[in-house]
Simulated assay, not measured.
Amino acid sequence: MTPFAVAGVQMHVNALQPNVDGMIHRLDVLMARFPWTQMVLFSELAPFGPLPRFSLPLRNETLERFREAAAKHHVWLIPGSMFETAEDGRVYNTSTVIDPRGEIVAHYRKMFPFRPYEAGVEAGTGFCIFDVPEVGRFGLSICYDIWFPETTRQLTAHGVEVLLHPVLTGTTDREAELAIARATAAQFQCYVIDVNGLGAGGVGKSCVVDPTATVLHQSGGQEDMFPLELDLDYVRRQRETGMKGLGQVLKSFRDRSVDFPVYDRASGADAYLHSLGPLEIPQQGSRAGLDMGETPEIARPEPELFKGAAVPEAVNRTSGGPAPARERDERETTPSTT
């Protein structure tokens, strides 16, 4: 067994004044109550809330306070994230990993800002992977990143065993996000530590999920501190023998017989996606996507781009869109010859 104790802190976040003192106070309380904790994770944008106007340079006085707190308690500390103003003036949503000596191990810029709502925030392009000596490999993603499984795919392909996931979700899609957290744990056979805030920081419902998609802890809508001892050997066992002795997902992906042309932007395989219109906030009375006219003409990639992959029967061979209803009806009522 390789045990490691990780605690999430779900706390009220104020949008108009700093929350840093409250974070450090809660860290002090957590470590007094649960001194065996080895890593602490706060929610996305916990220090200053969700307004980019409170953005700071990457190295700042607040980060120094968090470094001191980590060293004081001898814990790994991920203090959520903060808006960062880069040297070129662009703003990122950036998380920092601090080790038990108070040293900065890594910075991570959110790869998928919640566009179109998170306007004016740039997307990061680098991944965050770090090792806890004699324990295992950890990765970091922020909120909306997890909706794109490619992000976790990249992390786990490099051996990440625990996904740290600070979020700020105060919207009606929180239940969907919880389902995604469980699916991510199962798909990639890893722990998922998902920490949301309260107030301006979210609706709570933080969770910890193990590599079999079992929810180990689920917070409600109140403040919560939840330290749990993880077993990273359990991750390795699941990946080697399959989830509950069943699906060996990572090895099956490794041994795949197909590559995916949709990831080649020049292939044309994503032509349909370009028909969906601009990425913008819906307006009152919007009829977007409800046009009852003809299906727009969509360029279909050349057959060789599929590299032998089967084309679904319900795809119109000329436009790439749905087959006409009459054609579908004829197929559905014709006995199979196979």
Rank of each mutant, 00 (worst) to 15 (best):
V121L: 14
A183V: 02
Q218T: 01
A176G: 09
T152D: 14
P227Q: 04
G204T: 01
E150Q: 13
Q154F: 12
D233A: 13
H158Q: 15
A179K: 00
G199L: 11
A213C: 06
H217I: 06
E122F: 02
T151S: 10
L230H: 09
V162G: 05
H158M: 13
G124F: 02
D145Y: 03
Q222A: 14
A185F: 04
C190G: 04
T156I: 12
H217K: 12
P166E: 13
V209E: 05
G220W: 10
V160K: 03
L168S: 12
V203F: 01
T172C: 02
Q222D: 14
K205M: 12
C143H: 00
T214L: 13
Q222Y: 10
T212E: 15
F188P: 06
G120Q: 03
E223P: 06
I146W: 02
S206V: 06
I146L: 15
I142F: 06
S219C: 15
T212C: 11
L168F: 08
F112G: 00
V215H: 08
A176D: 14
A181I: 09
I142V: 13
G124T: 05
L140E: 02
D233W: 05
E161Y: 02
V192W: 07
F138Q: 09
F127K: 02
V135M: 05
T184R: 10
V192C: 03
V215F: 08
P166A: 13
E229I: 11
T171A: 12
D210K: 00
V160S: 08
G159R: 04
L164P: 06
G197Y: 07
S219I: 04
V160M: 00
L155G: 07
G159S: 06
E161R: 00
S141N: 07
F188A: 03
W147H: 10
R174S: 11
C128P: 04
G202L: 00
V162M: 04
E118T: 03
L178E: 12
M225N: 02
G221C: 08
W147Q: 10
A186C: 12
L140W: 08
M225Y: 01
V208F: 14
F188C: 06
L230A: 08
L168Y: 01
V208E: 02
H158Y: 12
F130P: 06
G136H: 05
V132D: 03
T169H: 09
E229Q: 15
V215D: 07
Y191T: 04
T171P: 05
L163Q: 11
V162S: 06
P166Q: 12
G126A: 14
T152R: 14
L164Q: 03
L216A: 03
M225T: 11
R182Q: 15
T152K: 01
S219W: 01
G221S: 10
Q187L: 15
T125M: 08
E229C: 11
K205P: 07
A213L: 02
H217L: 05
P113C: 07
G204H: 01
P113R: 08
N196A: 09
L198N: 01
K205A: 14
E118Q: 15
G159P: 03
G201P: 05
K205G: 07
T151Y: 07
C128T: 10
C143Q: 00
L198I: 03
E118M: 14
F188L: 05
Y117F: 15
I193F: 11
K205T: 04
E175M: 06
D224G: 08
D233G: 14
R137D: 02
M225W: 07
F188N: 09
D173W: 14
C190W: 02
V192L: 07
